Amino acid sequence: MNIELPGTAGPAGWPAADCHCASCARLRAAGVRYEPFSALIDGVPLAGCPQEAVPGGRDVRAPSGGRILVAEPGGRPEPRGVYDAVFLDPAVPDHLGRLRDLGAVRPDTRVVPVHLDHRLRSPEELERRLSHWLDPVPGPHRTLLLGGTRSGKSAEAELRLAACPDVTYLATSAPRDDAEWSARVEAHRRRRPSWWRTVETTALPEALESAAGAVLVDGIGTWLTAAIDEAGAWDAPHAILPRLDELIGAWRRTPARVVAVSDEVGLSLVPTTASGRAFRDLLGLLNQRLAAESEEAALVVAGRVVGLP
């Protein structure tokens, strides 16, 4: 099956006419334009190929007999079998994970991003995301994402694993009788794909040792808080060091592809309490040790990702 793509953008093109957002303005200044999506399948326009409407898109038959699933802009097309190619909107990357989970997309299925527009910051950002989605790194592989409060670090972790078919979300916070905290937890839960498995545990070293597939840990700071509580070590922080050693050992030995989120605590004011300073020092030490044992580490600032060499 031969696929030609004269255009890959959304209906308005990219940049869109009269749009002055940063994404469109950047492309316009560079003299770059992506034409609205169109495709030739074995030399035949996509619209001329036999096809059936499915929720969220179309199931298309190529003249040579191949099968293609085509998403509408923003759509999540329902599969009707196994596909040789899928044309999907990268603004909904978790749908690729769902198709893989269902077996509709196999390792040899061609995945084509279409409907590109200013929902993406730039073509470079698209390439960065596709590097995580199109050819997922198998385990063992460890990534540490650092960032401050509301930096976008959790969203970046979820984005990196969105196209994986099998994800375990390790939520490491101990239960709290706190309405505001519960609302935060629920917001994270609603944002995650519904087919991900969620495991709420503070036994993080043990969970990493037995993990398989792709794993998202959110987060290291809440695990450390729970570990200090369990050890009663707020007045004697050195007592928690063996537990940190256990976590580093499990991080080193895990067979999974793990993306872990942790707070970067060294850029704010010095805590006014001894326990606050102890927590900052312990988490800073733990972050350093995890980063030293990670294939990748990155800092997330205002939703932008800076790779750490």
Rank of each mutant, 00 (worst) to 15 (best):
V261M: 01
P55S: 09
D281F: 06
G219R: 03
L27I: 06
R58E: 15
A212N: 09
Y169N: 09
P140T: 02
E52Y: 02
S275Q: 13
G81Q: 03
A17S: 11
H20Q: 11
L145W: 13
P93H: 12
V259M: 07
V199G: 05
G284F: 06
P205N: 06
G303N: 10
P242Y: 02
H132R: 12
P45R: 05
A85H: 01
E4M: 08
P55E: 12
A171H: 13
E4F: 04
W196V: 00
P175M: 12
P107N: 06
A278S: 11
P50R: 06
V217F: 03
V112K: 05
D177I: 04
R191N: 08
A214N: 14
T254G: 04
R197N: 05
F279E: 03
D94H: 13
L224T: 02
Y169S: 09
A179Q: 13
I68S: 02
G221R: 04
H238I: 07
V259W: 03
C19F: 15
R197Y: 02
V32W: 03
A47T: 10
G303C: 11
G276P: 04
G13F: 06
L267S: 10
P165N: 03
V82G: 01
V54E: 09
R277W: 07
A302N: 01
T8R: 14
T143G: 03
E4T: 14
V270F: 01
G139W: 03
L99A: 05
G103Q: 11
G303W: 12
L285N: 13
A29H: 09
D59Q: 07
A29F: 05
W223M: 03
V305Y: 04
L5W: 06
D177L: 10
L286G: 00
P123F: 05
E293A: 15
T172P: 14
P73Y: 02
A85P: 03
A212P: 12
R67G: 09
L27E: 09
D218N: 04
E124W: 08
V261N: 04
G43R: 01
R190V: 14
T109H: 11
P50M: 11
R197M: 04
V70M: 05
L299F: 15
P36I: 02
C164K: 07
D18Y: 04
A183N: 05
A274N: 03
D94F: 12
A231Y: 10
